[in-house]
Amino acid sequence: MLIADALLQGILMGLLFALVSLGLTVIFGVMDIVNFAHGEFLMLGMYSVYWANLFFHIDPLIALPVSAVVGVLLGLASYYCFIKYLLRGPAIAQLFGTFGLMLFLQYFAMFLFSADYRMIDKGLLVGKSLSVGPFIFDWTKLAAGILSLIAFAVVYYFLHKTKTGKALQATSLNKEAASYMGIRTDRMNAIAWAIGGGTVGMAGGLLVNFYYAYPMVGILFVMIAFACVALGGFGSIKGVFFAGLLVGILEMIFPVFGHLIGSDFLGPHFKFTVVYLAYFIIVVVRPQGLFGWKN
């Protein structure tokens, strides 16, 4: 029973994780860059919904587009003002560069909003739950899971069915060939960052319904996203979806196992340790990811 419950809760979280990781994998696929600041986009998405709710009394669910727009703008601004210049340097400088962006956004948030933990306390779904048979779901998590799925599907459709999306995929398969075919790499990069920022900003908007917003919240989620992206195979969209689900389930189910066998070392404090270990083991044993296609 406990396990079935953990499984269902894990799937809901997993759908959200998939949305969080989606942008990271798109950006990685198109331009081979690992964005450390991804978690900070999430954090700012969370804050944008939080403030919209507090000041303008907009329901967190209705304010969701705000977080998506904030994310898109952040992504574009980061790309045009910074990442573009970073691309000229070696890989190590790129890593440090996005890490610098991450620190900057963290402390920018701390400067503006202070280090307080903030949580939304009023909203259509906040605090309400749905019971189906023996299972009890928080409406907020349910909505987060379902809306994540929808958002993921929309982006998936965009990438696979529209002309721009196909161009993006072509760029991520082979940058040089794509540029010979008249696809402008620079524009594709910008679009990847817009998608990356938009999806993760929206994920932040969903997350803030049931999770604290604070300046350092991003690092936790960016590590989860790294794990999902690696599990799915860097750059793979399909892969990251299933990897997100898997990580969500892992994260929920391990504490349950720990509880069942009475072991402290599988306790809830270690749920993310499990994710890190999963990443480590997966990349060592199967570097192309569970569903990977890109080397």
Binding site: F82, Y85, F96, F99, Q106
Partner: peptide, 22 residues
């Protein structure tokens, strides 16, 4: 009221160095 400013400068520096003088 200036909490975080120090790290923002620090981070901006990291960004500038990695973009312009790796």
């Amino acid at each position: 009221g200036l909490t975080g400013i120090d790290f923002m400068i620090y981070a901006a520096l990291i960004m500038i160095v990695s973009a312009y003088q790796p």
